[in-house]
Design a protein around this nucleic acid. Structure first.
Lengths: 275, 275
DNA sequence: TGTAAAAGTTCCATTATTTGGAACAAAGTT
DNA sequence: AACTTTGTTCCAAATAATGGAACTTTTACA
């Protein structure tokens, strides 16, 4: 199975870092410009983008013009650039057509009903986890509030859970691409710590995020194994430490694990028996 | 101001039609492949995409491989292709960083409080309107429920409102790019009908969608004029005909119009006095 | 199970696009 | 008004995309 197209959920490099991007091909270069703009807080001016891209002025100018032409970027009146509306359009379709999410949804609802806390569904993409769905309480969910967010694998429950199902080689490859960063005092600080924890997650089928990404927030997660070979994902229950104790989290572990198994089963049947 | 980059909200052609796309440059070609996949209901197989793209097999294969590499497409286990997760990530950033939306939000909330019906904010993109935000009742908003949706300008309140602020030349250009399609018996069926109605909207500052896109749904909308020259947009109050009478809609017109003016004012001040 | 047809993948000389440097134009500043 | 910064255009050289055909794998059917 040496297909070029089957890398699926492990696109390339740590996308979203703006640096560390192997910009192969015209598309790759264009995307790296998008990345630079996406990872900036404020809308950027031409020169600012230029500095972060190190490309000749003329080249960047044309690339940006192309991106604007496609609606992937917009120019503001003050000559700053931001991400374009077209992205919303595509994302809306991507979300609506995501079978994995659709199948998982009822199970997420069920898990939320039991725990009363926020349930997340995330998929592996490079060295990050992208949140694909979220079920939370009464509070009217602000769209995109978390959906679409990309977080590093090594400091999130879903991230660690998801990569625990990778083959040893893939895991190896992925881990060495990670750029570790200390978000909190609990953040795992390197490959050995991560691999050790993965080992344990493999055994238990349960991963914890012990305030490793954001202090005050912790979660229990379980991997959703790739039935047909392509989606590496996980599901989690998240809560603030002041309301959700560690014991409570441990108590939910079983439920989360079961939910993951149920989703796997549904994927197996509803996705049609093919390969 | 003959800048190449300033076409901003009128990117190119009727994006999303899969056909009628002037695929200039490598990026354009890649996007047209994305478009084909985005406008299909079901995930597509390679050959299916091939037919809709008329390109040589080898070429398409490589293009798809690139898109997959960038995370813009994903391959499913059964060799079907769907839009990639990376799009969610970008869209999430695009949405979070959209100043226009952020400024408009409180005004949308206020309008919703008065009317009790769903309030939409949409921006012009090509010959379509892309919904950028939505405020609705108690019902927990399913994300992406409408946000990111692209609807034709000629059959939506916001669409007609938004293009009513275009210069005569731009309007002319845009109208002839439109591919009219009868969604309901009330859908405007051609350029003359549309232009006539635009004329009226120009005078009143109010546009109606009289079940022109979906029967059973109608709305009042008002244009939000481009203060600094780039964003063509509109705001609307939408409701089902069984609950919201036409009279009620007309009664709200003034409020909608005022809301639009308030947003314009805020845009003028909060966007910083530049050009 | 065997065989044929369809679907998917690779290769490489040709062709077209992107590149990048420098010159040019327009804003913004002192 | 001169200067500095920022944004835009141009074109020969370098690079990447093209498309046809050959090749491999998968799927369908007898």
């Amino acid at each position: 199975m040496g297909s070029t197209l089957e890398q699926v959920s492990t696109p390339k490099s740590d996308s979203g870092d703006a640096s560390g991007r192997r910009d192969t091909g015209t598309l790759g270069k264009a995307m790296s410009v998008l990345d630079v703009i996406a990872s900036s807080e404020h809308p950027m001016r031409f020169t600012e983008i230029l500095e972060k891209c190190d490309q000749p002025r003329g080249t960047l100018h044309r690339q940006i013009a192309n991106l604007v032409e496609e609606g992937l970027l917009t120019v503001n009146h003050d000559h700053t650039y931001g991400l374009g509306l077209m992205l919303l359009r595509y994302a809306s379709k991507a979300w609506a057509g995501n079978h994995f999410r659709i199948i998982a949804e009822p199970h997420m609802q069920a898990l939320h009903a039991v725990t009363g806390e926020t349930v997340h569904l995330g998929m592996l993409s490079g060295t990050k986890v992208i949140y694909v769905d979220k079920v939370e309480g009464r509070q009217s969910v602000r769209m995109y509030s978390q959906i679409g967010n990309a977080s590093p694998v090594y400091c999130t429950g879903i991230g660690k859970a998801a990569i625990s199902t990778l083959s040893p080689e893939c895991l190896e490859d992925l881990v060495q691409k990670i750029d570790f960063h200390k978000f909190t005092t609990n953040t795992l600080s390197g490959p050995k710590a991560l691999l050790a924890e993965i080992e344990e997650i493999r055994r238990n089928g349960i991963a914890f995020d012990r305030e490793e990404h954001e202090s005050g927030i912790h979660c229990v997660a379980a991997p959703i194994k790739p039935i047909k070979g392509d989606t590496f994902a996980g599901i989690s229950v998240t809560g603030p430490v002041y309301r959700v104790s560690t014991e409570m989290l441990e108590q939910w572990a079983e439920q989360v694990h079961e939910t993951a198994l149920n989703i796997e089963e549904d994927l197996g049947t509803k996705l049609g028996p093919r390969a």
